[in-house]
Design a protein around this nucleic acid. Sequence first.
DNA 1: AAATATTTGTACGTATGTATG
DNA 2: GCATACATACGTACAAATATT
Lengths: 82, 82
Amino acid sequence: MTEEQRTPHYLYRVVFEQFKARIESGELAPNTPLPAERRLAAELGVALGTLRHATQLLREEGLVVTIPSKGTFVREASARSS
Amino acid sequence: MTEEQRTPHYLYRVVFEQFKARIESGELAPNTPLPAERRLAAELGVALGTLRHATQLLREEGLVVTIPSKGTFVREASARSS
DNA sequence: AAATATTTGTACGTATGTATG
DNA sequence: GCATACATACGTACAAATATT
């Protein structure tokens, strides 16, 4: 066998891509709130820091917006793209 | 006493601003390597995550560049500005 | 070629702070 | 005052990449 293309699948990236796909497919509509981060982390079985790393990437891509002490919400499609 | 203007002085921000100042003043010249992050965190008496948060801000401002398994280095002034 | 040292990257779980309602 | 939710901070462990011996 030849060299495999090694693309490590870091947890924070798996979570990020999962949500990215669900948002871009429309499954998660604009203004939909994501579950609270601790709760979501618990559901997914990842640490808080890991989940926050993932949502940080979502914010950087413009997919979600986080409002302190309110929640994290799916953004309008027009607000997206880096 | 009247209301004080409360501006919280988060640790990661203190560290960030300390290095930002030292870089912009020229005390830390371009290509100077910063101490290894774990070592630096220990010296400053902060947690690794806190130091990494600070260096992440430095990277975002273009003040430093981090090369995995090599180190974090002060950038040329021309590469800066947000 | 292999082992070692150095350095950044990822991941964990918990505690406390801050802001809103 | 209380509940909820994001933000900061801690300390530790292991993984991955690079360079040196």
